[in-house]
Design a protein around this nucleic acid. Structure first.
Lengths: 214, 214
DNA sequence: GGTCGCATAAGACTATAGTCGTAATACGTT
DNA sequence: AACGTATTACGACTATAGTCTTATGCGACC
């Protein structure tokens, strides 16, 4: 018995995915989540065999959300579903350990094929993109690992840093003293092997999807 | 009489381009340059109708090089030649005002077609990429304009900032006092409409090609 | 040949970033 | 229960970033 979790903030697209899968793979049990927190909750409490993850979920912060999941559940197979067709981003997604990338434009049959392939342990990519993607970058996944080793607080601080906030503003947002923010910042530097904010921001921005290009 | 300048640091690829073009378009006069400085020199002293620019030239700094050329010669038609097939980067290249993108894998016939189309005033893109690319981002080209308005010194300082250097180190590299670097930094902030280094670094890193993903 | 605008340069000063030492709490291990 | 370890927290201190002011050189323009 195989259970699959669909994590996507768009109810309509969840329906579409469910329809596509139940038609071709009726033996699957399907669960759903609409944001990252409930996704993590369900993964903690239930036995899930495959996660279909949309990067653009509330609380997900794009690639960071995937890193978060990969860190919490290293053994869980994850396939990313996204509207983007940016090959650079897809390369990053695969480097970080996702077992597949399903574009939102994929047909029902493609989606079913992808899920079957990934459940078999293969990596699945859309045909038209597979050449540009297979070059996994060693330095990048090394960096992703380091970022994944950050504690939740450090992680939040890094996100705010990437948005250009001052330590004082970050402290206000997280309701902690500026001194504490600074301590987190120093810890982040040590974990990432760097020594100033600029380098941290660069790493954070390269790990994540650029600001929306729509 | 139409004159075309090939700017590419690889002599072999310059030869290949020249061969492809002289075969299909024998009426063209061809000039060559191997780095950004000689490119600018030639553009200043001669009448060029179209520039074929490789992004990865010495002194070019990827997209910054294109911005530089676009700023110095706004009326000059430019086609970018590059080995990348990253659609996000190609979108940026077009947003910044290039009239075409020619992948290094293009055939001689494709290259000739592209040059003809661009000389006619059209925008040319390789067939297999044209869907993912046409979404020009307004905010992005606005930002690119602002970066293009930086003076040469400010520009260099921004590049060093993006590399994570301290003001002191930047001053050493440019052989000016740290105080002067700070003055440049403040001027950059004003032109870009921001107020700290983190935001400047983010803008710089988004304008440029990410670190090599090969 | 002024003079206006602008890039460059730099010192003095204030604000912010980053380091260090320390303490309290949470959590798994024995 | 006792222990080690990691995380969170924060104040005091130093280094760096960023602002303000002033000065000089240089090309455009009347």
């Amino acid at each position: 018995m195989i259970t699959l979790l669909i994590a996507d903030d768009h109810p309509l697209y969840r329906d579409a995915l469910r329809g596509a899968l139940s038609l071709s793979l009726p033996a699957l049990t399907l669960k759903e989540a609409g944001d990252l927190n409930t996704t993590v909750d369900i993964l903690n409490n239930e036995d899930i065999d495959l996660l279909l993850l949309d990067l653009h979920m509330p609380g997900s912060n794009d690639l960071f959300g995937l890193l978060h999941i990969r860190k919490l559940f290293p053994e869980l197979p994850v396939a990313v579903v996204s509207g983007t067709e940016d090959t650079a981003l897809i390369s990053k997604i695969i480097s970080v350990g996702a077992l597949g990338f399903i574009p939102k434009t994929a047909s029902a049959q493609d989606i079913a094929n992808a899920v079957e392939a990934i459940l078999d342990g293969d990596v699945w990519l859309p045909d038209n993109l597979s050449e540009g993607v297979d070059d996994v970058n060693e330095a990048f996944s090394e960096l992703a690992d380091r970022v994944a080793s950050l504690t939740p607080s450090q992680y939040k601080v890094l996100c705010y840093m990437r948005d250009g906030l001052l330590n004082k503003q970050i402290g206000f947002n997280l309701d902690i003293a500026e001194a504490t923010v600074k301590a987190h910042v120093t810890a982040i530097f040590k974990k990432l092997g760097i020594n100033n904010r600029t380098q941290a921001v660069l790493i954070a921005s390269q790990l994540e999807l650029e600001p929306p290009v729509q």
